Simulated assay, not measured.
Amino acid sequence: MKQVTISTPFITLIVLDYGAIIQKVLVKDKNGKSVNVVAGYNTPNSYLEDNKFLGACVGRYAGRISNGGFELDREMYHLFQKDGVHLHGGKEGFGKKYWTIEEVHQGRQPFVKLSYHSKHLEEGYPGNLKVFVTYKLINNQLHIIHEASTDRTTVVNLTNHSYFRLDDESQINDYDLQLHCSKLVETYTDLLPTGKLISVKETSFDFLKKRKIGTTRLDTPFVLDSGSKIAGMVSSQKTGIAMEISTNQPALICYTPQEFPAICFETQNYPDAPNKKNFPNSKLRPGEIYKNESLFVFDLL
C-alpha cells in the first residue's frame, strides 16, 4: 500500500492509493499544536478491515439506491443489495480498490492525482468508467475534485467519506454547526428517499443559524440552498479550528456515527436519484465529464 504526503505551511495531507483514502489532515489549532482533523488509522493496512469508509472515495454511486437496481435507457441493471438497500457502490465499491497514483506535485500548490478504471458491469453498473480524484492544497484550503468519463451511458455519484473530528473530546455535542440548507430529502426508516423534499424549520435538523449539534444525530441528506456558495461550517471551541465546506453538488449528506465522535460531510447528488425522476440528473453519457468540486477551508475562530 502506497502513502503520499503533501503539505503547505497550513495543512499536511496524507493519502493512500488504497481507496484513494484520506488518512490524515493535519492543521494547527489555536495554540499552534498540530491536530489530525479526520478519524482514521495510524497503520495503512488497518484500512483493509475497515467497514466505515473512513476517508475513502465512495462510488460508483455514493449513498443508497432502492429496488435492487435501476432502469437506464429501457434496460434494467441489477445491483447488490442488503435488506433492500444498495449502499456506496456495492459489495466493495471504489473505497476497497487500489488506485493508480497518476501524479504528485510538491510545489507551491501541491496535489496528488489518482485514477481508477471501473469496468463495464463492475458491481452491476454499465459502462467502462475512468475515474480521477485530485487532492490539492492551496494555503489553508483542501480541494477535492472527482472526475469521470464513460464509454456508455451510466449513473455516477462520487464523494469523499472523511469523518471530521476537530478535537479529542469523547463527543461532538459542543461543535457549532451551520448548514445553508432550508430543506432535506425525506427518508423512510431504512434511509431510502420517499421522493419528497421537506423543510427543516421547526425540526431538530434546522441548522440555518449556527448552533451546537447537541444530542442531534444525523444520517441526513440536506439540500443546498440555491445561490449559496457555502454549504456549511463546523467548529470546535476547544481547538479553535473551524472548517467551511463549499461544493458544486446539490446535496450535503451529514452523518454522525454512533461508534465514535465525528461528522461526515458528503458532498454529492441526492440518494436514489437513478430511481427518482424529480431528483437531479445522475446520468453520465459518452463524451460528457462528471465533475464534483468540493472545497474544505480550515481557519481559526
Rank of each mutant, 00 (worst) to 15 (best):
residue 286 P to R: 10
residue 264 C to Y: 04
residue 284 L to F: 13
residue 3 Q to P: 11
residue 214 G to Y: 06
residue 212 K to I: 12
residue 115 S to W: 06
residue 176 D to E: 13
residue 221 P to H: 13
residue 274 P to C: 05
residue 26 L to Y: 07
residue 62 A to P: 08
residue 126 P to D: 04
residue 233 M to C: 14
residue 20 A to W: 09
residue 18 Y to M: 08
residue 140 N to G: 02
residue 86 H to I: 09
residue 47 Y to E: 01
residue 83 D to E: 14
residue 137 L to G: 03
residue 27 V to W: 13
residue 96 K to L: 10
residue 186 E to W: 07
residue 119 K to G: 10
residue 66 S to Q: 09
residue 251 A to I: 14
residue 249 Q to L: 09
residue 268 Q to A: 05
residue 131 V to L: 01
residue 58 V to T: 07
residue 245 I to H: 03
residue 167 D to E: 11
residue 170 S to P: 11
residue 162 S to W: 02
residue 222 F to D: 15
residue 196 K to F: 12
residue 35 V to Q: 13
residue 136 K to M: 00
residue 83 D to N: 12
residue 151 D to T: 09
residue 75 E to Y: 00
residue 125 Y to K: 12
residue 116 Y to E: 00
residue 169 E to V: 14
residue 260 F to G: 02
residue 71 E to P: 05
residue 31 N to C: 08
residue 268 Q to Y: 04
residue 54 L to G: 00
residue 286 P to N: 12
residue 168 D to F: 14
residue 124 G to D: 14
residue 190 D to E: 01
residue 140 N to Q: 00
residue 100 T to D: 14
residue 209 K to S: 10
residue 70 F to S: 03
residue 289 I to W: 05
residue 155 V to H: 15
residue 68 G to T: 15
residue 235 S to G: 11
residue 301 L to S: 07
residue 101 I to Y: 08
residue 45 N to P: 09
residue 92 E to K: 13
residue 215 T to L: 06
residue 162 S to P: 00
residue 55 G to E: 00
residue 49 E to T: 09
residue 251 A to C: 15
residue 222 F to M: 11
residue 3 Q to R: 12
residue 100 T to H: 15
residue 18 Y to C: 12
residue 185 V to Q: 05
residue 139 N to E: 09
residue 48 L to R: 12
residue 28 K to G: 07
residue 88 H to R: 10
residue 57 C to N: 06
residue 112 V to A: 03
residue 57 C to M: 02
residue 44 P to N: 03
residue 144 I to K: 00
residue 232 G to L: 10
residue 79 L to G: 07
residue 110 P to D: 09
residue 76 M to G: 00
residue 280 P to R: 02
residue 287 G to K: 08
residue 228 S to H: 13
residue 28 K to R: 13
residue 195 G to R: 13
residue 65 I to Q: 06
residue 145 I to F: 02
residue 238 K to Y: 07
residue 153 T to S: 03
residue 93 G to F: 08
residue 30 K to P: 05
residue 190 D to Y: 01
residue 295 L to D: 14
residue 222 F to W: 13
residue 134 T to H: 00
residue 82 K to R: 15
residue 296 F to S: 10
residue 99 W to T: 06
residue 127 G to N: 06
residue 13 L to T: 02
residue 281 N to M: 10
residue 30 K to S: 10
residue 59 G to N: 06
residue 156 V to C: 05
residue 116 Y to F: 01
residue 57 C to P: 01
residue 23 Q to V: 04
residue 27 V to I: 10
residue 210 K to D: 00
residue 135 Y to D: 02
residue 64 R to S: 11
residue 175 Y to E: 10
residue 261 P to S: 00
